[in-house]
Design a protein around this nucleic acid. Structure first.
Length: 924
RNA sequence: GCCGGGAUGGUGGAAUAGGUAGACACGCAAGACUUAAAAUCUUGUGGCCAUAUCGGCCGUGCGGGUUCGAUUCCCGCUCCUGGUACCA
């Protein structure tokens, strides 16, 4: 083979890996394991673009590096194949989502295989495969059959809870349950009907059916979770979303809030992602205080983080949505207050969010009693109070809270300072100050006052210390077709699990993928969507699971993908353990990454797995943005002006396909062929070239800036694509895609090829021993690669390969002693060409079975160092000196140097700083 | 508003236990090869000044500080970017 023929080489080795099963992983207790995982993709109809493989290439490099280091590597790939786009497409075209999904998966798989990943394809999983979702349904069943025990601080079987109820009722049971769970004795429990008992158990189950306020998206006909809604619009499709009360399945993720929070400390994730999760969980420590209402037996419960400022409370504020607000309105205030509630309700979520500045509210006419000093304080309705957080009521302390302050100023309410400090600039939180004007709390610090207040509240039975979370329980149902059916049937209106032997509950066929005429989800159209038990035939649940169900545990399934008796064999999950490296986008910070942690902790609690955090180390790759190119058309003509001249004409910019532009220069022939109306286009050029304008935008078809990896591979090969994606910049950084530098990487591979093919393209290596310089060039690269692997700094490794190859080329190196380790070194980045070299060098086995070359410091040891000599902070001379010199010897050498003496002008330096092996610095 | 991340040549980027700023690559320019183009190779390439030589000055978003020495540490800003938001 004369030239570097990447097409032939890459096809050959991809075929070889497949035939030999090179990347098959298997449990092997003798070798240390390494689990390298990518966030599996949703197979969209648009196919893979160059942004997708970025993270996969990085994890592939790490995986191949770990193989060379002797690890047993698990590196799988699969598809998150349930989802909205396939269903929307089904609604439009009638094509079954399974078919669309199948086609998209084939396309993705083909594209991925072209890049030469070291995936064990035998372990591929698909969340929409019944053999897979059988176990998603099984996990759901375990959640339904469990409750969270606060004493054991873990999930326990619901049967043990029932046993306790039979013994002692629920008064002493410390478990996570709904706020409105009634108290009952053992005798009462036994007297309840089965229905009543089941109803009560739903208050405790880790997945439960309850009326919840949900994000309803009418256009999509389904409920969405908070993280699927952005600014009042659906994340997919951008349709408006409204708040609506509906019967929904929920997951009691809040039971795990504290463990999810604490677990973060042990994880090697980036600080921003951990911080996002902390904010999302939103733990606040405070107190619940009950205010009596004057002349009524109504009570107002508030949550506050600053109970120490209780003497500064000058009004209470209720959310307009709260039922209590409506009840507390007196006749005198009825007209204005009810009008206000109506007005607040009519304002959409979005209005309320975008318009934060306007202060509005209404007085109810009622007064509450401050339990600490008996003061009467007015009760207001205010839309800055959110129904969904805490109790939907706040105690307002205008002196020490900015929102309360603004509200009080606006409505002329009292502002009473209770923390030492200056009110000159309005309210201040005063967290470090001393409490004043507060009866027996005066003189205490915030912490002391809080403790005293909480003790008082608990003693009086009118409140308690409380931890409040921002995170809500996760809604677990979607009124859609293309998802996992819930393994639940209804008897007397109450949910029951189907039997485990009947799993999987397979998604039924329907005639259309739309809701039924009476508004039921699409499964309402299925024939015989019922479940038969000994006692009769009952309707099955019509909703399906959300997109995050299948992705919350897929990392376990890879360990044992075809097991039909359990979701994964315990011996296997014990061996592979937690993911050692997880690479994916940061957009899943609060969704997928939180749900996966939750399910893993639950599976740990029930003894199904031995780890309680799924992802030990995570790297978030930055998004690849599009880089659009523009041409400038003279208005009303078919003439296009090059970038530099566009302002001398009256032009309008037009997006041009980036695939017919190279290094920002337009290929005129391809441009004319691009669209029929451009066939007779004319150009005004600069220096004979047409320069295009460029801008960074999102990658999108309409902007003609989508770059497909297949095109790059066709032109340069997969090894070039892999190297170039890494060379583009740090993995975690957001960066626009542009192919401007790709030629350099391609050139590098050809130079590398030439090292092994020195004359007339014929392969030849010499067995002569390598020179000192040759070994030095090699070992510099080995050292750099090892360091970079530890820091996930892939771009700098590519540079170091280039330096190494440049040096070896100028040394004319052709020694096996250097070229053999060099092939191993580059093999994680450019596996195809490396395999080819390895075979040419006479090895029968894949290069992935080789050992990473051992770095030898001895090859880098220098005898001399060129000292920079700085005089008054400026570089003035360089001195080549032996590294064995002592500090006084270096000083002497520096001071006698002619160049240095010139700058010293005969004066003796005031100060001499010498760092051996680094620098000489003289101060005059 | 709050919480993160960032700003270095024409471009992507490199260098932080403080120690020669601009590695590597692209682009550009000049040259070689060629009928020509492509490809390839060689040389140069931060800015300004300079008798264009010796060389000098300025330079890592802006303004200060610490230090013999700061892209790196500290203080105060500007801009870009991600997340989140009337969270009590």
């Amino acid at each position: 083979m004369a030239e570097y023929n990447f097409r032939e080489i890459e096809q050959k080795w991809q075929q070889n890996w497949k035939e030999k099963g090179t990347f098959k992983a298997a449990v092997d207790p003798k070798r240390p394991k390494f689990y390298s995982l990518d966030m599996f993709p949703y197979p969209s109809g648009a196919g893979l673009h160059v942004g997708h493989p970025l993270g996969y290439i990085a994890s592939d490099i790490v995986s191949r590096f770990k193989l060379l280091k002797g690890f047993n590597v698990l590196h799988p790939m699969g598809y998150d194949s349930f989802g909205l786009p396939a269903e929307q497409y089904a609604i439009q075209t009638g094509q079954h989502p399974a078919l669309t999904t199948e086609q998209n998966i084939s396309r993705y798989t083909e594209q991925l295989k072209n890049i030469g990943f070291a995936f064990d394809w035998d372990r591929e999983v698909r969340t929409s495969d019944p053999a897979y979702y059988k176990w998603t349904q099984w996990i759901f069943m375990q959640l339904f059959s469990s409750y969270y025990d606060l004493e054991a601080n873990k999930a326990l079987p619901i049967s043990s809870l029932v046993a306790r109820f039979e013994q002692e009722g629920n008064a002493q049971v410390k478990a996570v349950c709904d706020e409105d769970t009634p108290a009952f004795t053992a005798a009462q429990w036994k007297a309840f009907s089965t229905n009543e008992q089941q109803q009560l158990l739903l208050h405790y189950r880790l997945t439960f059916l309850a009326e919840t306020t949900v994000n309803w998206c009418g256009a999509l006909g389904t409920v969405l979770s908070n993280d699927e809604v952005k600014d009042g619009f659906s994340e997919r499709g951008g349709h408006p979303v409204e708040r609506k009360k509906m019967m929904q399945w929920s997951m009691r993720i809040t039971a795990y809030a504290d463990r999810l929070l604490k677990g973060l400390d042990q994880l090697a994730w980036s600080e921003p992602i951990k911080e996002m999760q902390r904010n999302w969980i939103g733990k606040s420590i405070g107190a619940e205080v009950v205010f009596a209402v004057k002349g009524s037996n109504q009570k107002i419960q508030v949550f506050t983080t600053r109970v120490d400022t209780i003497y500064g409370v000058t009004y209470l504020a209720l959310a307009p949505e709260s039922d209590l607000a409506a009840e507390l309105i007196t006749d005198a205030q009825r007209a204005t207050a009810e009008a206000y509630i109506q007005q607040a309700k009519n304002r959409s979520e979005r209005d309320r969010m975008s318009d934060v500045k306007t202060i509005s509210g209404a007085f109810t006419g009622s007064y509450a009693i401050n339990p600490f000093n008996g003061e009467e304080i007015p009760v207001w309705i205010a839309d800055y109070v959110l129904a969904g957080y805490g109790t939907g009521a706040v105690m307002a302390v205008p002196a020490h809270d900015e929102r309360d302050y603004n509200f009080a100023r606006h409505f002329g309410l009292e502002i009473r300072q209770v923390i030492e400090g200056s009110m000159e600039n309005g309210s201040f939180p005063g967290k470090g100050g001393i409490v004043i004007n507060s009866g027996n709390l005066s003189g205490l610090t915030m912490k002391e006052a809080m403790n005293k207040c909480i003790a008082f509240l608990e003693e009086q039975g009118i409140g308690r210390g409380k931890v409040q979370y921002r995170m809500r329980d996760a809604i677990f149902t979607r009124q859609r077709y293309w998802g996992e059916p819930l393994p639940v049937y209804f008897k007397d209106g109450l949910p029951y699990l189907i039997e485990e032997k009947d799993l999987p509950l397979v998604l039924p066929e329907v005639d259309k993928y739309l809701p039924t005429e009476d508004g039921e989800p699409p499964l309402g159209r299925a024939k015989d969507w019922t479940y038969t038990t000994e006692s009769g035939t009952y309707p099955l649940e019509l909703s399906t699971m959300p997109g995050w169900a299948g992705s919350s545990w897929y990392f376990f399934r890879y360990m044992d993908p075809s097991n039909n008796n359990s979701f994964a064999d315990k011996d296997k999950t014990d061996y592979w353990g937690a993911v050692d490296l997880y690479i994916g986008g940061s957009e899943h910070a609060t969704g997928h990454l939180l749900y996966s942690r939750f399910w893993t902790k639950f599976l740990y609690d029930i003894g199904a797995v031995s780890i309680d955090e799924p992802f030990q180390k995570m790297i978030n790759q930055g998004m690849i943005q599009g880089r659009s190119n523009f041409v400038y058309r003279i208005k009303g003509s078919n003439t296009f002006v090059s970038l530099g001249l566009k302002d001398t004409y009256d032009t309008s910019a037009m997006h041009v396909d980036v695939n017919i532009v190279h290094n920002d220069q337009l290929n005129l022939e391809k441009f004319k062929a691009w669209r029929p109306d451009l066939a007779n286009a004319e150009f005004i050029l600069e220096d004979g070239k047409y320069h295009c304008g460029a801008e960074v935008e999102k990658m999108s078809k309409s902007k003609y800036n989508v770059v497909n990896p297949d095109d790059i591979i066709e032109r340069y090969g997969a090894d070039t694509l892999r190297l170039y994606e890494m060379f583009l910049g740090p993995l975690e950084q957001f960066k626009p895609w542009n192919t401007n530098g790709i030629d350099g990487v391609y050139k590098f591979l050809r130079k590398l090829w030439n090292l092994y093919h020195p004359q007339n393209g014929a392969f030849a290596v010499s067995d002569a021993p390598a020179s000192k310089e040759e070994l030095k060039a090699l070992h510099k690269a080995i050292k750099k690669m090892e360091e970079d692997m530890a820091n996930f700094s892939f771009n700098t490794s590519v540079s170091s390969f280039m330096i190494c190859v440049n040096e070896l080329t100028s040394l004319g190196c052709n020694k096996r002693e250097v070229l053999e380790p060099l092939a191993i070194l580059v093999s994680p980045y450019a596996p195809h060409i490396a395999e080819e070299f390895w075979a040419l060098l006479g090895h029968g086995e894949s290069i992935t079975k080789a050992h990473f070359p051992a770095f030898q410091e001895a090859h880098l040891v220098e005898s001399n160092f060129e000292y920079p000599v700085m005089i008054n902070g400026k570089l003035r001379a360089k001195l080549d000196l032996p590294l064995t010199l002592t500090v006084p010897e270096i000083e002497k050498a520096a001071l006698t140097d002619a160049q240095v003496q010139k700058w010293l002008e005969g004066k003796a330096p005031k100060k001499v700083i010498i760092v051996p092996g680094k620098i000489v610095n003289l101060v005059v």
